[in-house]
Amino acid sequence: MIEEAARELAARGESARRVARDPVNLPMIRNWTEAIGDDNPTYEHYAPPAMAQVWTMPGLAGQRPADDPLGAMVAVLDEAGYTSVVATDSEQTYHRYLSPGETVEVSSRLDGVTGPKRTALGEGWFVTTRSTWYVGDEPVAEMMFRVLKFRPSGVAGTAIRPAVSSDTEFFWAGTALGELRIQRCGGCGRLRHPPGPMCPSCRQTRPGYVVAAGEGTVYSYVVHHHPPVPGRAAPFVVALVELTEGVRMLAELVGVPPSEVHIGLEVRVGFSRVDGELTLPVWRRR
């Protein structure tokens, strides 16, 4: 039923072209550069390429045209119970920069619908559309735009929480403050992670901690693909990192494409706040 509707909508091809309300113009460009904080002087002569879509936005009173493929597909998925939406990715390609006075037109088509997929947010369908902006018959910019239409699930975004004991609470109190803490024995000074109540070197039970510099190198790592994990979008990387202080620690490695991760990659800790009660350490490329 969903696949059938998707096939039918995709087969319709490009929608009728919709003409921008205004030609490319300096006042709107200046509103944009002022708001974004972009002082690039070239935009006194050309429109910022990232404004391509702005020219054809429907605006406050505007309506999506009846043949808009995204609107039609969203209606089908709403009907099927996939009522929530979130944009996941986009890719804009700019063939040339536009000058004030040019009038653009846009046309969209449905590229594909895939699903149902189990995602961290819930079961859903990815809807991909492609739009092309024209001046006359010349394509000047293109965009792939993908949204996830999903049925919110009970586990959506539910983070897996650590069991915290009186031996480990200092660590989690630290992450909440943006500190990466390593247990340090109050007797012999040995650093230890994961922490515990009694020092295995000197058997004293006076643990303290030091705040780590937060830098280290990847000792090993994995790229998780299956199964879906609540609160995370696969594929994601989890890395075991050797800190400069000499202990190893495990956390998600973010902001680096899996293909670029390697043993020996230099990383620095960051902190990802899940909610008021839990902040996780994460690794980022140094």
Partner: peptide, 18 residues
């Protein structure tokens, strides 16, 4: 473009939202 300079040309922006 703050880094690349005013004469730079942006050809493609691909982004994923978190």
């Amino acid at each position: 473009t703050d880094w690349a300079g005013p004469d730079a040309l942006v050809r493609r922006i691909s982004l994923r939202l978190g």
